[in-house]
Design a binder for these strands. Sequence first.
DNA 1: GTGCTAGATTTGACTATGTCAAGTCTTTGG
DNA 2: CCAAAGACTTGACATAGTCAAATCTAGCAC
Lengths: 146, 146
Amino acid sequence: MEQSVGDLLKSRGLRSTAQRRAILTALLGHPHSTASDLVKRRIGVGESGPLGLSKQGLYNVLEDLANAQLVRCIEPAGSPTLYELRVGDNHHHLVCRKCGLVEDVDCAVGVAPCLDPVERKGFAIDEAEIIWWGLCAQCQEAVADS
Amino acid sequence: MEQSVGDLLKSRGLRSTAQRRAILTALLGHPHSTASDLVKRRIGVGESGPLGLSKQGLYNVLEDLANAQLVRCIEPAGSPTLYELRVGDNHHHLVCRKCGLVEDVDCAVGVAPCLDPVERKGFAIDEAEIIWWGLCAQCQEAVADS
DNA sequence: GTGCTAGATTTGACTATGTCAAGTCTTTGG
DNA sequence: CCAAAGACTTGACATAGTCAAATCTAGCAC
């Protein structure tokens, strides 16, 4: 599996480095991670313990992975950028206003842009991004209790 | 009109101050302004010339106006927070990937949440936020010319 | 009109998130 | 193994915003 992560990188024309494998592996375990989540977890590499990675290196890697279509970024209002591995399926997101929990939701249509605006205003549209805002189950309970 | 801006504030239980009137007036003229757009324009007040306003004051005013439902914030990925006056009509946005231009689009349904997700995952959803990404007419031309 | 007080604003330090540029190190093909 | 393109590190810097404490003022009571 560690091997396949390396192959995945190479198949996209990227060199297989310890840092990139570590970040991909970390994202496999934690979808919707922020850059600082990854730093806090110290990006463990398989059995071999924690690996440090510079802040700049982290942003470089994430940018490279995003350019190679291996990760996708989302930026819900009020949250730092989140990185996730699911790409190419044009899915959308549920975001909790209180705790920030993010859940994936499949797109009913499947291909971007899955939704047409009422007016196009001359734009060439390539994607419809949808975020549903609300309260997650746990935060609803917390509100009900108070 | 300056008067009506003051009345609008009072009707929401906010004091009518020069700073708040100035910001509301500035937003009337420039929808989709960032905080720094407002600072750069120095927030002219009617005939009476430019008025300075501290950075903190600006954020306080914008927060107060947002709490009073007089302005709405949007945060497209890669852009600082934008403030706009249209509220309560649940409209959506077109955003240009290249120049950042933002256009309003009416919502076909009209009331939030205007769209249901395929799966709800236990969330109590109160709003569906939609951003259509693409290139505005002008940036399409620029690309075609190159 | 005057004074009071809750509410509004200012000031200045600080935080979070990220970018830029230059130099060093490493992966990979030959 | 070696060279060189590509990847990573370091450290300064930028942007967008937050926090806390002091000061000021709009709007009300008189």
